[in-house]
């Protein structure tokens, strides 16, 4: 399973970025390899419009099976994510990546 997190850093201890479109990083944890792939999304700050679709497009190309985030994607972003075979979980805005992963495993995150 490839699990994507919207994050403020690139480690297990990093905080989840509650924003979807304007997340600083996209961190992908590959369970089988026990390894991270990270995507630096900080250029999104320069975008005045359409951060949601732009970040969704990155997620689309990275093809994770699961997305864990905070507030959840907006309408435009969601319409892109709906085209993928992906499960989205929200409500991890105040957690570290590790805590969010554990919460996901326990099934306590909210499915979008």
């Amino acid at each position: 399973m490839k699990i994507a997190f919207t994050t403020k850093g690139e480690k297990w201890e990093s905080m989840i970025d509650p924003r979807f479109g304007r997340t600083e990083f996209i961190l992908i944890y590959e369970e089988e390899k026990d390894a991270f792939i990270s995507f630096d999304n900080r250029d999104i700050e320069q975008e005045a419009h359409g951060a949601g679709p732009k970040t969704s497009q990155v997620i689309y190309d990275l093809k994770p099976d699961v997305l864990i985030t905070g507030n959840g994607p907006g309408g435009n972003a969601a319409s892109i994510l709906e085209r993928m075979n992906i499960k989205i979980f929200t409500g991890a805005g105040n957690m570290t990546v590790k805590e969010a992963y554990e919460a996901y495993k326990k099934g306590t995150l909210k499915e979008f």
């Binding site: 005045a48 679709p53 497009q57 689309y60 319409s79 892109i80």
Partner: peptide, 14 residues
């Protein structure tokens, strides 16, 4: 404006 994105073999306009 990120109003147009390429998703695989599809172009989506917002």
């Amino acid at each position: 404006y990120n109003a147009i994105v390429k998703l695989g073999n599809e172009i989506v306009v917002f």
